[in-house]
Amino acid sequence: MKVKIKKWTGVGTWSYKVDYDNCGICRQPFHGCCPYCKWPGETCPVVWGQCTHCFHIHCMAKWLKAQEPREQCPLCRQKWRYA
């Protein structure tokens, strides 16, 4: 049997790459610190949500403030709850 393709529709898809090395908000590496801090380490820890996504604590605080009164994960938009 010969199949002739008459029509081909390309459908693009994309997904968020869950990047465990970089903060999804500032896109800087977790082993460094957020753009608001000068030095990596104790002053700029990483926070985790129950959705398993993580961000710099300072980046997350800024986002929650900007998004008030809603509180959603910047990546998956589920309700943000600290894990």
Binding site: I25, A66, C73, P74, L75
Partner: peptide, 8 residues
């Protein structure tokens, strides 16, 4: 959402 990019 803050994790969205110009590409998205």
């Amino acid at each position: 959402a803050a994790a969205m990019t110009l590409r998205v």
